[in-house]
Nucleic acid binder design. Structure first.
Length: 762
DNA sequence: TTGTGCTGCTTTTTT
DNA sequence: AGCAGCACAA
């Protein structure tokens, strides 16, 4: 075995070698954190620890996988497979499947994702006849989530005067009642949401000492990655499990704590010293990733935060280019600049597409860039907030699988009982749900004895339901004999989903069908490669906790520009980065500007964004941007003024137009700053240059749409004489606009629009 | 019961 | 701009 310790700097090596007691590794951005963690695990193995005695917790599946891959170079594969390594959620889901029976959970319990959880809450609000405006499901969900992450069960919520006072003060006195009801329903459905996985683990370890004992003994060494992002629930789990051996190593960077909206407590890392006696602290401060300019710029920004641990990140890398700053008239110009810039770098062969990332604050910003990159034939991949497995068409199929495994999964039933259409409509479901609720039954129990409802349901409906029940029963029986892949195919076949979908020839329909095919491929992949358990249960387990980022492994052509939110970019690095949309109200988000804590989190987020970059960093903003269908203007982000200007290179302000500025003062401030740097050429002329505010439509587009009638290329239309057809071209100007239409029956015709009566059909 | 078209809301980030 | 939810019609 090669001496891996030689590949580390002295502090890294010390951190790896120290196994005697609790340790805290403060790892600055780009300081080789993953390397230290993986080497430390290898070191544990070499020091006689058995792999099954090591627990390593990460925040993303990707991080876990990355560590495993890296370890394969250094340790034997059999050992690595026996490690307990994974996300908090997946590890403790696994634990609950093994041990949850004592709490009344079968090993087949369902995991509700955020979507399921919100639907359930929405249903409850509806059934309680509360005003959905007053009780937005989203906010109630996050309130409940917060309670759970602070280990506040409905019973403690009820006793907590403060919480209820707050709910009353915002006119939501029924929050507790909703929480109670939601909590009970999840239990009844044998379902756990993401927060329950941690909460129930806590209850398990608290109330069952022999189980606690078992796992305290099993986990002889515990490592936690991204410790700054742990919430109370996770923190207590870690504390309980490590209480016996006190062999725990947590790694984190307070400057990169960006998940407090999800209940993460930055205090967990700030106070770690108080929690563990004889703590050894290691500070990794040398950055191996970025140029001096980038590291220094990031430092100068994060220094503005008051609440932080002392740490000075430095680098011995080259000075590098300054950070390029540019502002544009609107979001389209911004996107075109990025597209052109990527093309230029690519032409000069300076970077591969895969070296480049576009980072933004909100997912909705991706659209504009997607459009531009597609137009310029630049290959890209987007990591969206919606995971592949959360797409409606996939969730439909998954719902069948979930129901086959767990008949009490009410959310699954609601989703599929009328998909594909079987004439079991909303009214029917409402009646059934009422019966279920008033008898403390699951929906499935009611369906099993649907004949009893002959007074309130028609024979037709009862027969439809019986058929549905038979179908599910049949599939459940078959499940015993089949592997996951075979079962999925049978489901697609017998439910007629496959047939229904292939009949849909619209673009979206075809797209959905392709997604389903991709899904079956993923299932096949799973059955082919899973080493021990290839049941559908195991597969569902994996995808319930999968995110979009976890699906790229099999992507062959990886030379693509990456687009993602800054949050999603944590832990990654790119040679060239564009941070876009640096505007007040967007980054920092308008929701965070009123309070210092949240503003500091936004600043850390910006810190994360900057430190993703190895070599060339562009930061852009737009003076005006399409938001909710309207153009809204914004001043450049305050964070730009917080970076020490000596690390910045101000670009030319492109075609500035003060018609776009309601807030001139803020713009002028920005302009002043730009003037203050030498590289900016004669600002006044540029700034005062006026252009017509016609930002959206380009010529090419306006030729393809007839403004008068709203007809557009690609639309389907109906003509009184020729029947249905599709517009393939629009030519000429009003009043002589003509449309070339390809009719299904009559063939291609050119019609003068002022005469032809075309009606648009969907 | 299903389909359609209108209204009003959304966007912060995610395991 | 896009979408969910809803009212109303077929």
């Amino acid at each position: 075995m090669q001496n891996y310790l030689n590949e580390l700097n002295p502090i890294q090596a010390d951190a790896v070698k120290y196994l005697d007691g609790p340790s805290l590794i403060i790892a600055g951005a780009g300081s080789g954190k993953t390397r230290v963690l993986t080497y430390k695990i290898v070191h544990l193995l070499n020091s006689g620890y058995k792999p099954s005695n090591i627990l390593a917790l990460t925040f993303t599946n990707k991080a876990a996988r990355e560590m495993q891959t890296r370890m394969k170079m250094l340790a034997n594969e059999g050992d690595i497979n026996k490690l307990w390594i994974g996300t908090f959620h997946s590890i403790f889901a696994k634990l609950l499947r093994i041990e949850g029976q004592v709490m009344g959970f079968p090993s087949t319990f369902t995991i509700y994702d955020a979507d399921d959880a919100k639907r359930e809450i929405k249903d409850i609000i509806k059934e309680k006849k509360l005003d959905p405006q007053q009780y937005p499901a989203n906010e109630i969900y996050s309130r409940i989530s917060k309670a759970k992450n602070n280990l506040v069960l409905p019973s403690s919520y009820e006793k907590n005067y403060e919480l209820q006072k707050f709910d009353s003060s915002i006119k939501r006195p029924e929050t507790l009642a909703i929480y109670k009801s939601y909590y009970n329903r999840c239990r009844k459905a044998q379902a756990m949401d993401f927060d329950d996985l941690l909460l129930n683990t806590n209850i398990l370890l608290r109330d069952y000492p022999d189980i606690l004992d078992k796992y305290q003994n099993l986990f002889k060494y515990i490592l936690v990655d991204e410790y700054q992002d742990t919430n109370v629930s996770q923190y207590i789990i870690v504390k309980r499990l490590s209480a016996l051996h006190k062999k725990i190593c947590v790694v984190g960077d307070d400057s990169q704590s960006i998940y407090s909206f999800r209940g993460a407590k930055i205090e967990n890392i700030l106070n770690f010293e108080k929690d563990f006696k004889n703590l050894k602290t290691f500070k990794l401060e040398q950055n191996y990733r970025s140029t001096k300019n980038i590291v220094n710029a990031a430092n100068s920004l994060i220094e503005k935060n008051v609440n932080r641990l002392k740490k000075v990140v430095f680098t011995e890398n080259e000075v590098g280019d300054k950070i390029y700053l540019k502002q544009f008239v609107d979001d389209k110009k911004e996107a075109y600049f990025v597209g052109d810039s990527i093309k230029k770098y690519k032409l000069n062969n300076e970077f591969d597409y895969s070296d480049i990332a576009i980072l933004y604050r909100t997912n909705s910003q991706s659209r504009t860039f997607e459009e531009v990159l597609r137009r310029k034939s630049i290959p890209y991949k987007i990591y969206g907030s919606i995971s592949f497995y959360q797409r409606a068409e996939i969730k439909d199929i998954v719902a069948y699988l979930r129901l086959i495994i767990n008949k009490r999964d009410d959310q699954a039933i609601k989703r599929i009982i009328n998909y594909p259409k079987r004439a079991i409509g909303n009214t029917t479901m409402q009646k059934i749900i009422n019966v279920a609720n008033s008898n403390e039954l699951n929906i499935w129990d009611v369906l099993l004895q649907i004949e009893k409802l002959s007074k309130i349901l028609s024979v037709r409906v009862i027969n439809a339901i019986r058929k549905f029940v038979n179908l599910i029963d049949y599939l459940t029986e078959e499940m015993q004999k089949l592997d996951a892949f075979e079962l999925v195919n049978l489901v697609l076949e017998k439910t007629t989903i496959k047939q229904v979908m292939s009949n849909d020839t619209t673009t979206e329909g075809v797209n959905k069908y392709q997604n389903v095919e991709e899904f079956t491929n993923a299932v096949r992949d799973f059955t082919d490669n899973a080493d021990d358990d290839r049941s559908i249960t195991k597969f569902l387990e994996e995808i319930a906790l999968a995110t979009d980022q976890d699906k790229e492994a099999d992507d062959q052509d990886n030379n693509k520009v990456t687009m993602m939110t800054v949050h999603a970019s944590k832990g990654l690095e790119f040679k060239k980065v564009y941070i876009v949309g640096m505007e007040e109200g967007l980054f920092p988000s308008y929701l965070s500007t009123s309070n210092d804590r949240e503003l500091e989190e936004e600043r850390r987020l910006m810190y994360v964004a900057i430190t993703r970059c190895e070599k060339i960093l562009h930061i852009t903003s737009a003076a005006s941007r399409m938001k909710w269908g309207k153009y809204t203007s914004a001043a450049p982000s305050r964070f730009l003024t917080e970076i020490n200007p000596k690390y910045l290179e101000m670009g030319v302000v492109e075609e500035k137009n003060d018609d776009f500025f309601e807030n001139k003062e803020e713009f002028n401030n920005f302009a002043d700053r730009i003037r203050a740097t030498k590289s900016y050429p004669k600002p006044e002329e540029k700034v005062l240059k006026k252009i017509k505010p016609e930002p959206t439509k380009n010529i090419e587009q306006s030729r393809q749409i007839d403004k008068k009638t709203g007809l557009e290329v690609g639309m389907k239309v109906e003509h009184t004489k020729f029947g249905r057809g599709k517009i393939i071209e629009i030519i000429g100007n009003f009043p002589n606009t003509k449309a070339i239409v390809n009719f299904e029956q009559a063939g291609q015709k050119t019609l003068l629009l002022k005469f032809a009566k075309l009606t648009i059909i969907k």
